[in-house]
């Protein structure tokens, strides 16, 4: 009996520890401080301006997340994306106009980049007023409940 009890206690402790590790891993991989450090070399020689950590949970239907980024005609900019926290590839597409515009130009896309390439850099051409970042998340047809994050940093000079 004592042996069985001991086994159960060990098992339950194991479960708790495993659950804790899963949470820790999710926390660690989407820690904005760590992600910012990882993006810093790619941002150079631009100065940090702002950042956005987008937490993404796949849904039954596709999701389009758009972030509007205003730029100055007098500045030069760099966009750095880190997708380490995303267990499956999502579309990162950058446009000159918003998602409701009938005619907009695609300025940058990760469509051709490998899933293992988790750092993406885009330098918009000078004299651009606004940039629209779209995260295109496919439908979770298999109900895998995929969760992750994309970290984006804007630099200027």
């Amino acid at each position: 009996m004592i042996k069985n009890m001991f086994l159960l206690v060990v098992l339950s402790a194991g479960f708790v520890f495993a659950g804790f590790k899963v949470i820790q891993k999710a926390k660690d991989i989407c820690n904005p401080i760590d992600l910012k450090k990882k993006c810093a070399p790619s941002l150079d020689p631009f100065t940090y301006d702002s950042a956005k950590l987008s937490r993404i949970t796949w849904q039954k239907k596709p999701i389009k997340m758009e972030t509007e980024v205003p730029l100055s005609l007098f500045g030069s900019y760099r966009f750095v994306f880190n997708t380490e926290g995303m267990p499956k590839k999502i579309g990162i597409n950058v446009y000159n106009k918003d998602k409701d515009s009938k005619k907009r130009d695609l300025l940058f896309s990760n469509a051709d980049s490998l899933e293992t390439n988790t750092t993406l850099i885009f330098d918009p051409k000078k004299h651009t007023r606004k940039i629209f970042i779209n995260y295109d998340v496919p439908a979770d047809t298999l109900n895998l409940k995929i969760k992750g994050c994309v970290y984006f940093v804007l630099g200027y000079k």
Binding site: K27, C30, K52, R55, I63, E66, T67, L154
Partner: peptide
Amino acid sequence: LGQDTTEVVDDGQGQEQTYLLP
């Protein structure tokens, strides 16, 4: 971990819009 720097606005059609401030 709810760390979006701006509030997400979901229009109920699987579309979300946020605004970055410099």
